[in-house]
């Protein structure tokens, strides 16, 4: 198919997405905005299905089955969930998006025999890390909101210190592993486990009224992950959509904090004072 035409459609989808998001921030046009956003992403998916690639094995049967299964599960879940359980549903969906992004990294590594230039590998590992943190973080948030994870199950001593130390180790490991341009399976496993542990430590100490802020933060993180996946697969719509979600998510998080008379740092790192306050 004509590559210029396909890129044109992708461009149109990007503009629709921005207009949709804009409309979503006004009460009267919010529903139109939602529809526009859905149309934009549907166009993006159609383009991705037929876009000419270097080695085309296509595997359409898997794509069609995957999309069908996902649509049925997604629609049923969205229809059945009671209005009061919306925040945890959003959190659950968000976690799925994060895991999906992490799987893109994994499949990229398999397809490229875990080899690549240092910067390529660095980006893929970054995507894997962010995706897994968004996934496990959203799952913990989901568990807390739906009530089967209680705050006292997740008491981590010196959580702020552990949090920062783990993050520093992860960044160091990311640079160290990507420097060689090659990744062994144990190294990949170690890095993934580190990402999962970090994700749990990041969300575990936060609870109660701060949960919406955490979900918004994780949401923003999934957006950033989607943008990084867009760099890996060289897709501008993913990049644009991901960055939009990432930056608007950050602003939304700050606005939510403001509405609660808290600062963001206070929510993320202030678990000591809040846990003392609630007993």
């Amino acid at each position: 198919m004509n590559i210029v035409l396909l890129n044109g459609v992708l461009f149109l989808a990007s503009i629709l997405l921005i207009i949709g998001l804009r409309k979503l921030s006004h009460p009267d046009s919010a529903r139109n905005g939602n529809t526009l956003g859905a149309i934009a992403l549907a166009l993006g998916v159609l383009v991705a299905l037929v876009y000419p690639l270097e080695t085309q094995n296509n595997n359409y049967i898997f794509i069609v089955l995957g999309i069908l299964a996902g649509s049925v599960i997604g629609l049923l879940a969205a229809k059945r969930v009671p209005m009061t359980a919306m925040p945890e549903m959003v959190s659950l969906f968000n976690g799925f998006g994060g895991l999906s992004a992490a799987l893109i990294s994994l499949v990229w590594l398999v397809n490229n025999n875990s080899e690549g230039s240092g910067s390529d590998l660095g980006i893929v590992l970054l995507n894997l890390f962010l995706g897994l943190v968004a996934f496990i973080g959203s799952m913990v948030a989901y568990g807390k909101l739906s009530g089967f994870l209680k705050d006292h199950h997740l008491k981590i001593p010196f959580s702020t210190v552990v949090n920062i130390v783990l993050l520093v180790i992860a960044i160091g490991l990311l640079f160290f592993l990507s420097y060689n341009g090659f990744l062994s399976t144990p190294q990949l496993a170690l890095f993934s486990v580190l990402a999962l542990v970090y994700g749990i430590v990041f969300v575990a100490p936060i609870g109660g009224a701060d949960m919406p802020v955490v979900i918004s933060t994780l949401n923003s993180l999934t957006g950033i992950t989607a943008a990084v996946s867009g760099i890996i697969t060289d897709n501008k719509l993913m990049l644009l959509g991901g960055v939009l979600v990432g930056s608007s998510g950050i602003i939304l998080t700050l606005l939510m904090c403001e509405a609660m008379n808290r600062t963001f740092v206070n929510v993320i790192f202030g678990s000591f004072s809040s846990s003392k306050g609630t007993g």
Binding site: V45, M86, V90, A101, N111, T233, G241, L244, L252
Partner: peptide
Amino acid sequence: PLMSASNAISGVVLIGAILVIRVT
């Protein structure tokens, strides 16, 4: 609603998943 919508938009990862499976 905006948080939920932007969460839906981060579903663009689907495009990436399609692109990687097509070269697998």
